[in-house]
Design a protein around this nucleic acid. Structure first.
Lengths: 183, 183
DNA sequence: TCACGCATGTAATCCGTTACATGATTCC
DNA sequence: GGAATCATGTAACGGATTACATGCGTGA
């Protein structure tokens, strides 16, 4: 369901080939929706069949030809309808938390290592977001209309990663304390 | 892959029927991993075939009979091995953020409504977590060993929902400001 | 009597992942 | 010469969702 909408969302901004889309889903939109190139090509074929997007073959020399896709008016309408529908909370799937949930089955060191690794990954993600913010989103006064909304999704990522890091620190400190005292 | 591990994690604590598992995945473990009863029954069949769990039929009068599953030693070993393996960041999939990303395509009111709805949902989730914390996790001194770890997963949920709420407020305020001034 | 909880499944479809496959150009 | 980038796909498998299906007991 939602992969198709994510593709429409990217195509709303600008026409893209499958390859371009795959790159978008690996950065920018990819920060909150993942998709591999295989999924994207399959979905593009389906959407074209349904008349939601149209593809145009672009002849290129010194490069493979490509197909540029853009939204039809049906596609635009579909996207806007979907945006207006209420969204429920996204289902969480976090394997680290499952591991932690049964952390008492393994040595404490194992769990601390997992937490520290996760902390590093979240710190890296935060740095990525912050450097994007500095480069492209420095002064809200200068943003395009679309820019304001993109900025807010970036702010979401920054909030999210910051709170993960805070939790990691809390969790590590907590486990160290309770293993010293009680374990 | 990970559904099987999530099931093993629940069974590590106590033997369960498929029905019991389905309830666990709808609360507690369900806060960070979702699964429907159909998925669970299928996965149980597979795990039993592989000798990772064993099922025992429990005769019941005035109730349908049930099958209680528990881990074999192979299952326990598998679970512990899995815990020790490093985890990468869980892939995010949040359709609200896709909608926000192309928020300029619809009236501002539509987006504000989405954000306010989401805010309400996150506030409810936070309340749920906080009431669990008060009821069952009031004094860390009294926790069982497993309790410490479960407490940390709950703390994760509280951090997460709190930061979402903060972001929602920020985003709503931001959009109101920029529509007044610039839009 | 009607809804809900207990208890277990099948079938169809869709979505996602992994692996395989090709072939030119450009940069080091 | 080798790796990376551009560009497109197929095939097989596995995981997830939705719908269908059954049937007893309990409490309002």
């Amino acid at each position: 369901m939602a992969l198709s909408h994510a593709i429409l969302a990217v195509l709303a901004d600008r026409t893209c080939s499958g390859y371009d889309l795959a790159k978008q889903f690996d950065g920018s939109v990819g920060f909150f929706w993942n998709a591999s190139h295989q999924q994207i090509y399959r979905e593009l074929a389906k959407l074209e069949q349904q008349g939601i997007i149209v593809g145009e073959t672009i002849q290129q020399d010194s490069r493979p030809n490509k197909r540029q896709f853009s939204l039809t008016s049906a596609g635009k309408a579909m996207l806007c309808d979907w945006i207006a529908k209420p969204s429920s909370l996204p289902p969480t799937k976090d394997e680290l938390l499952i591991k932690l949930f049964v952390g008492h089955l393994v040595p404490l060191e194992t769990i601390l290592t997992l937490l520290q690794d996760q902390q590093t990954l979240h710190a890296q993600a935060l740095e990525t977001y912050q450097s994007i913010a500095q480069k492209y989103f420095n002064d809200p006064e200068t943003f395009s209309e679309a820019g304001h909304f993109q900025y807010l999704t970036l702010r979401n990522g920054i909030h999210f990663e910051t709170s993960w890091l805070a939790w990691c620190e809390e969790a590590i400190a907590y486990l160290k304390q309770y293993s010293d005292q009680g374990g």
